Simulated assay, not measured.
Amino acid sequence: MEFKSGIIMWGFIVFSPLAHADISYIDKNHILNTLTDNIEQQYVEVKKIDKISDALTVLKTSSEFTSSQSQEQFASLLTAELQKFDKHFTVQWQNPNKSQNNKTKREPWFTKLSRKNSGFNRVEVLDGNIGYVDFWGFAELSKNSKNVVESVMGFVSNADALIFDLRNNGGGSAEMVQFISSYFLKPNTHLNSIYSRVTDSTREYRTFANVNGSIHLDTPIYILTSNDTFSAAEEFAYNLKHLERATLVGERTKGGANPWQFYELGSGFRAGIPIAKAINPKTKTNWEAIGVKPHIEIPQTNALDVAYKMALNEVKKSVSDEHQIKDINDKLEELSNSLPLKEK
Rank of each mutant, 00 (worst) to 15 (best):
I221S: 08
N286F: 00
K186S: 14
S336R: 14
V149R: 00
L185N: 05
I130Y: 09
I328M: 00
E81Q: 13
K28C: 04
V292Q: 05
E150D: 15
A209P: 05
G131Y: 01
A161E: 03
P220T: 02
P220R: 05
D86K: 09
A161Q: 10
E81W: 05
K4W: 02
S53P: 01
N102T: 05
K146D: 00
E204H: 07
W136M: 02
G256L: 12
D86A: 00
K146R: 14
K254V: 08
Y43M: 10
F3D: 05
R252V: 14
A271F: 10
V44L: 05
V152Q: 05
K4D: 13
T199L: 11
V125N: 11
S157V: 01
L224G: 10
G172A: 06
S68Y: 11
V249W: 07
T61L: 04
K112Q: 08
E333N: 14
N169T: 06
E314V: 13
Q92L: 07
S62D: 12
M153Y: 03
E45I: 06
K186Q: 13
S320Y: 06
T247I: 13
T219H: 07
N286K: 02
T57W: 05
A174D: 00
N280M: 09
E124P: 00
L185Q: 13
V152S: 01
I52D: 08
H295P: 04
N147M: 13
M153I: 12
D218S: 14
N210I: 07
E45T: 01
K105L: 14
G250D: 07
V319R: 12
L78K: 03
F164N: 05
D86F: 10
N192C: 12
R115L: 14
F208H: 01
H295V: 01
K186V: 00
H20G: 14
L248A: 05
R206H: 10
H20W: 11
M1S: 14
L341K: 04
D127A: 10
S24V: 05
F135M: 02
E333W: 12
N144E: 14
D37V: 12
R106C: 01
I221E: 03
F184D: 07
A19H: 08
N38Y: 09
N95L: 03
R167V: 07
R203T: 11
H190T: 10
G6E: 11
F120V: 13
P274L: 08
Y205H: 03
E314H: 08
T202Y: 07
T202R: 12
L162P: 02
K98N: 12
A161P: 02
H242Y: 15
I221K: 08
R106Q: 14
K317N: 09
S267L: 15
K47Q: 15
K48D: 09
R167D: 06
L82K: 06
D86P: 00
A21G: 15
S181K: 11
K112A: 02
A209Y: 12
E251C: 07
A246V: 10
V91K: 03
P340A: 14
D37N: 11
R203W: 02
E334C: 04
K293Q: 15
S145A: 09
K98E: 11
L191C: 08
V14E: 13
S67E: 06
G268D: 01
H20K: 15
V46N: 00
V306N: 06
Q71A: 15
R167P: 07
S214R: 13
F164L: 10
D165A: 07
V306P: 04
S226L: 15
S67F: 03
N258Y: 05
